[in-house]
Write a protein that binds this DNA or RNA. Structure first.
Lengths: 102, 102
DNA sequence: AAAATCAATCGTTCATTTGCGATGAACAAA
DNA sequence: TTTGTTCATCGCAAATGAACGATTGATTTT
């Protein structure tokens, strides 16, 4: 059968949900977010103490969470304090909840 | 600095959440699930009609959703009817909602 | 029995993710 | 100024993901 495959485009809801889901798609990122949520905030050092992974790996996961918008980092030399971005957190919460609601 | 990197192990909550999140981490899978949720069920053919992607690609995404447990396929020769797995759907809903709740 | 239909799977290609050690940049402390 | 601390980034390797066309297997229809 011959199918015409045009360019697929997604709604922004689909893309935003996928973006947040991707951020949550690795268990260590779940752990990091849970940790941050409990502490309100924390320094990277606490995470590298708690999580048995290379510092560079944790830094990489933090970067991904930051790029998804779920966390933010405040530089407080020589350390960096990470916190959950409450605005994005609430947006994600709502988007997931709407998605599962219907 | 010398760090000891033991084997990391995750809780089953972390793993289950990550598994569902991964299933939702591609916009076309979001679209498929939304479609299924609206129709209750549908045949693969409806999806390949609706979504401008190769049949094999859609089939692959269906497989991933099935492996995550979110959908199930009933073979009704020569077609296959896909439905959301309500049990898994509710579990996912609760797990995401718990996660964002705290 | 032959042809048609539907969907899964195979094989390929290319891109992205994951993890690590090593290095670098910024700043504080000695 | 040198040393130490903290974290980000680079560079690499291995694994996984995404997309496609082609093929196969199951079943119906002709």
């Amino acid at each position: 059968m011959q199918r015409t495959i045009s360019e697929i485009s997604y709604t922004s809801k689909e893309e935003i949900l996928a973006k947040y889901a991707k951020a949550l798609s690795h268990p260590v990122r779940i752990r990091i977010l849970t940790f941050l949520e409990n502490q309100t905030c924390c320094f990277t050092g606490q995470l590298t103490d708690e999580i048995p992974m290379a510092q560079s790996t944790i830094s990489q996961h933090l970067k991904e969470l930051k790029e998804a918008g779920l966390i933010q980092g405040d530089v407080m030399p020589p350390r960096v304090k990470y916190c959950v971005n409450q605005k994005a957190w609430l947006e994600a919460k709502k988007i997931f909840s709407d998605f599962f609601e219907k």
